[in-house]
Amino acid sequence: MTTDAQWETHPVTPDRFEDFADVINRNRRPTHCWCLSHRLTAAEIVELGGDCEDQRERAMRALCEREHPPGVVTYLDGEPVGWCNIGPRSEITRLNRSTLMLPTDDLPVWSIVCVVVRSGFRRRGVSHELIEGAVAWAASRGAPAVESHPVDPKGRMDLTMAFVGTRAMFERAGFEVVGTTDATASKMPRLTMRRTLT
């Protein structure tokens, strides 16, 4: 990574949807998860996207029009290279209703549910810039804290489930372990980590 790299992170508003899609679904496959699987119930996806082949894309586009878009895209020298699914926990239905990843306390935290680094840009510091940008955006919207639910692998992360992130990744971004959950990813327990903002 060059020291003169220019990083920017922006919420995924409708005008940035194609940049988001370039990161998570470059070939625009309609059956791709579109980063909704950990955010919405199946009924909510149908409600937002209709009963059609591209319902997931349409549902995600609808989320981008809300007061709190469903996440942020990070750019390296103007090119979209990373995506972080983040928002108030209360607006992330699947997480909010989870019986395995319960709230730590009553604090109205924002939650990171997915982190994606675009293929071809890994090992270039994208995840750090992405998480920092996501936290800064949450802080600008009044979030008191940001939580994540990563795993703590022994060795390299399995890239098929890297979207959950690792303990080390979030520790580098100032998060601390505040608990464990009953959820797993690739048979590894998922932690609850938090970065307090206020």
Rank of each mutant, 00 (worst) to 15 (best):
N96Q: 06
A145T: 01
S90Y: 13
M101D: 14
E79P: 08
R141L: 10
P150Y: 07
A42Y: 04
C84N: 11
H149W: 00
E147N: 08
R39P: 04
C64P: 02
V113G: 12
L76G: 12
N27S: 09
L48W: 10
V135Y: 06
L48A: 14
T31G: 03
F121H: 14
D19H: 15
L102P: 09
R89I: 08
A145G: 05
R97V: 03
H149P: 00
E91S: 08
G133P: 12
A162M: 04
C114R: 08
H32N: 05
A143G: 07
E65F: 03
D158H: 08
I24Y: 05
G142K: 13
R118W: 05
G155L: 01
A59P: 10
A43K: 09
P153E: 01
L159P: 02
R123I: 10
P69Q: 03
V115E: 15
D158Y: 02
E79Q: 15
R56A: 11
W83H: 07
P103I: 06
V116F: 01
T41R: 14
N96R: 00
P150T: 04
P70L: 08
V81A: 01
G49T: 03
R58H: 12
F163M: 04
V126S: 04
A139T: 10
M101I: 12
P69S: 00
K154H: 01
A134R: 01
T41K: 13
L107V: 13
K154W: 00
V23N: 02
P144T: 10
T104L: 13
G142Q: 13
